[in-house]
Design a protein around this nucleic acid. Structure first.
Length: 465
RNA sequence: UCCUCCUUAGCUCAGUUGGUUAGAGCACCUGACUGUUAAUCAGGGGGUCCUAGGUUCAAGUCCUAGAGGGGGAGCCA
């Protein structure tokens, strides 16, 4: 279903209905020509490609064509014909042109020539009109769709976990406070602290850092669920891999153990890459040619390889005996550093690696402990270029074991009463993981900065647009 | 937050050891050209050299502080 009066550029380029009169609408990328003929490259975002509009200059008001400049928005009605030029197969011979919105070429920031990604970040309101961001945003959409399709086709239900959370026990990072209290003059308790009893929810609330705990509630009722929503971390992280607001996919499955969990993660990641290759080939080819010459070969290599599965202990052994001088020496019990992960993925195995069996001391309280009493059934999926793209685990389903761990770590148990209830009543083995959507987008697009794979990035000191 | 690099025209960048009036390509404006392909050709306009101090006869260039940005690290997805 679409409005009949307008043909999208994507359709027009493949329609094959030559000699037919159509109307296209979009934004001018370039205009070339001379006194007699003008060539207008028009793009409406439906595809990377422009459609060439050919205008017989004397047939149009001079003032109109003068305003058809890079960035202007126009509507063109004309005949779709085979192109006499060599750069495209069809073009539109314009009969009428309507100017929706001019763009003063002296001040319009986008030029037909390329811009640096850093500059485009400063004009995030206009960068969707570039080839690069058009391609990225179409890919982002396709990946979102593929995520829902994959889970739907595999019997998962989409669970909406809360954005505002009253739980501070997720332990995944610093949180953004949500409050309606007057910050200049907040209500106080008798001992001078801020009285959150008078806040909107009657308690301290924050933006979610993970939907996992609620996801587990869903899995222990619907069997297989997933969340896909915004996630917020108030960490002061200034890197090309971190955002304060990002999107995360978190499947949670009843009756899965850690191995089922790894199988799902691997299958899921390969499905998404495959979907992009099948449905977004043109955009991927563009990104491959413009930014990352190895993008397509890397994507193909990942879908055609079996992910390596090793334990944390094996990883430490490999790193220790590698003979490589790391800045941070490897030591059992310490978390793996970026340089260690990169060595394993990019040098040693040259393919994605899943590491399991981490020491419990460096992982979250809800992870299922192994019989050795020292390691947990955690899993991190490490990708070339990205590092950790997925983090997950089998969850501790035993009430006593979970309570003991909460006690050991000094986590306020009152806030988790509902979570513990899932273990108290009809508990079941289950597992799940979190996939950072923008990290996935980094891998899919070959971009190197996470701020370029989300339309409106939020990072420390930046909430413009 | 730490380390490091960068900031010169609308954009991308050059600018030598500190030395006359700060340059180029693209963009923009004017003109030429009857089918262009990031069109081409000719001409023109365009500068708070990030900001504030300092050193010096002299600072785009050296020093100090600050702001903004990139990369690396940590935290993590």
């Amino acid at each position: 279903m679409s409005i009949k009066s307008r043909t999208k550029v994507r359709e027009a380029l493949v329609s094959g209905e030559l000699e037919k009169e159509i109307t296209v609408k979009g934004w001018v990328r370039t205009r070339r020509g001379n006194k007699n003929i003008a060539f207008i490259a028009l793009n409406d975002g439906s595809t990377l490609n422009n459609i060439q509009v050919v205008a017989d200059v004397p047939a149009f008001p001079e003032d109109l064509l003068r305003q058809v400049t890079t960035g202007a928005c126009i509507s063109v009605t004309g005949t779709l014909t085979p192109s006499m030029g060599s750069g495209q197969s069809v073009e539109i011979q314009a009969k009428s042109i309507n100017l929706y919105g001019p763009a003063d070429p002296a001040t319009y920031p986008l030029q037909k020539k390329g811009h640096s990604l850093e500059f485009l970040r400063e004009i995030a309101h206009l960068r969707p009109r570039t080839n690069t961001f058009g391609a990225i945003l179409r890919l982002r959409h396709a990946m979102s769709y593929a995520i829902h399709k994959y889970f739907n086709d595999n019997g998962f239900y989409y669970l909406h976990t809360p954005i505002i959370t009253g739980s501070d026990a997720e332990g995944a990072g610093e949180m953004f406070r949500v409050t309606t209290l007057d910050m200049m003059n907040p209500p106080r308790t008798e001992d001078g602290k801020i009285n959150y009893r008078e806040d909107f929810f009657g308690k301290e609330t924050n933006l979610t850092v993970s939907g996992q705990l609620e996801g587990e509630i869903g899995a222990l009722a619907l069997s297989d669920v997933y969340t896909f929503g915004p996630t917020f971390r108030a960490e002061n992280s200034n890197t090309p891999r971190h955002l304060a607001e990002f999107w995360m996919i978190e499947p949670e499955m009843a009756f899965y153990d850690i191995h089922d969990n790894m199988d799902l993660a691997e299958d899921f990641l390969k499905y998404l890459i495959n979907y992009a290759l099948e449905h977004c080939n043109e955009d991927l080819r563009f990104l491959n040619d413009m930014y990352d010459k190895e993008l397509l070969s890397r994507l193909n290599s990942v879908i055609n390889s079996d992910f390596v599965r090793i334990t944390y202990t094996e990883a430490i052994d490999i790193l220790s005996s590698s003979g490589v001088k790391f800045e941070f020496p490897t030591q059992w019990g310490a978390d793996l550093q970026s340089e260690h992960e990169r060595y394993l993925v990019e040098k040693h195995y040259k393919k994605p690696v899943i590491i399991t069996g981490y020491p419990k001391t460096i992982k979250a309280f809800y992870m299922k402990q192994n019989d050795d009493g020292t390691t947990v059934r955690a899993m991190d999926v490490l990708f070339p270029r990205i590092g950790e793209i997925v983090g997950g685990s089998q969850r501790e389903e035993n009430l006593q074991a979970l309570e003991n761990r909460i006690e050991e770590l000094g986590i306020p148990r009152e806030e988790l009463w509902w979570y513990l209830d899932t273990r108290r009543f009809g508990t079941a083995p289950h597992a799940g993981f979190g996939l950072g959507f923008e990290r996935m987008m980094l891998f899919i697009t070959g971009m190197s900065n996470i701020r370029d794979v989300i339309p409106f990035p939020r990072t420390p000191n930046n909430a413009e647009f």
